[in-house]
């Protein structure tokens, strides 16, 4: 029994990593704009496709690059381009509506998401694409547990991103500016800080992290389609709310909780088709009993 549970925890950590990475984007944008960027799941999808494009391109070169280099190239390429996409979306779609009623921004975000889905569909067609197996999936047996290099890589890259982001928010001037905006936006320009610049940076950062999640997801679950961002986006959004939206560490925690919900549901309930039911029930219960999420108070809480 123990190895089965341990194995499932490992799998939950792998999936939870991806949810955590995407949840960060929801939570950071909410933290500084108090707006839910409903296009974020689709930004993740675009990041996933961009990773695929870069990986296929690098594999096609007659250089026989090592897999690690291809991974790194795809990671940097998709993070950079997805960051630009995120900044462009904010500039073109959200910024003109910053003074408008909240509901306008929400509807616009949904529209941007539909645009990204259908744009991808129009270019690539509906048939799913397959991610080339870059990283070895042959499992090592460690004490009754099977662990693949890919799982290890996902956990390490995620941990690295989480630690770096935490440092950025707590230690750098840009992180201070982000926290200041979440606390009292009107005062921030009085410090000589351009609020628009910080918001652009936040979108770039959140989108780049979602792209990293896209590459890791593509490697682990190698079937991509233009609508993949919808369900994963919802799960990441629930992760952010469960952890306490606006709270960065909360998003990390929520991601791993939702990963566990998805992996453990079929162990307890007869079929994995119950997973959305379980996840949304969890969300509803939490909203009733602890509306600000597990890690409590909203916004970039002092850490």
């Amino acid at each position: 029994m123990f190895p089965i549970i341990a194995q499932n925890i490992l799998n939950a950590l792998q999936l939870g990593s991806v949810y955590a990475l995407i949840a960060l984007g929801y939570t950071m944008v909410y933290g500084i704009l108090t707006m839910i960027n409903f296009a974020h799941g689709d930004i993740f999808m675009v990041g996933c496709y961009l990773s695929l494009a870069a990986a296929l391109f690098l594999l096609g070169l007659p250089l026989h690059l090592p897999a690690g280099l291809i991974f790194l190239g795809a990671l940097l390429f998709s993070m950079l381009l997805t960051a630009i996409l995120g900044v462009a979306i904010e500039r073109l779609a959200y910024r003109p509506l910053r003074q408008a009623p909240r509901v306008s921004a929400v509807i616009t975000a949904l529209g941007v998401g539909l645009f990204l889905e259908n744009f991808t569909l129009a270019i690539l067609g509906p048939e799913p694409r397959h991610f080339p197996p870059l990283i070895a999936m042959t499992p090592w047996q460690v004490g009754g547990l099977s662990l693949t290099l890919l799982q290890l890589l996902i956990l390490i890259v995620t941990a690295l991103i989480l630690v770096l982001l935490d440092l950025l928010v707590r230690r750098t001037l840009m992180g201070m500016a982000m926290r200041a905006i979440s606390d009292n936006r009107p005062i921030v320009p009085l410090m000589g800080v351009s609020v628009d610049r910080v918001i652009s940076f936040t979108f770039a950062l959140g989108s780049a992290i979602a792209a990293a999640g896209g590459l890791l997801y593509g490697l682990a679950y190698p079937v991509l389609d233009p609508y993949m961002g919808i369900r994963i986006g919802w799960w990441a959004f629930i992760s952010a709310v469960v952890g306490g939206i606006g709270n960065i560490r909360g998003a990390m925690l929520g991601g791993f909780i939702l990963g566990a919900v998805e992996i453990l549901t079929p162990m307890v309930l007869p079929s994995s088709t119950y997973r959305d039911f379980v996840a949304f029930s969890l969300l509803l219960l939490l909203l009733v009993f602890k509306p600000t999420g597990l890690l409590g108070r909203p916004l970039f809480e002092r850490v």
Partner: peptide, 24 residues
Amino acid sequence: LVPEGRGIFGNLTVLENLRLAAYT
């Protein structure tokens, strides 16, 4: 401007408040 009500960032430390003001 030293604004009415002071506008201190409550989720930043004293030192961070001062450092942020030296942003530029």
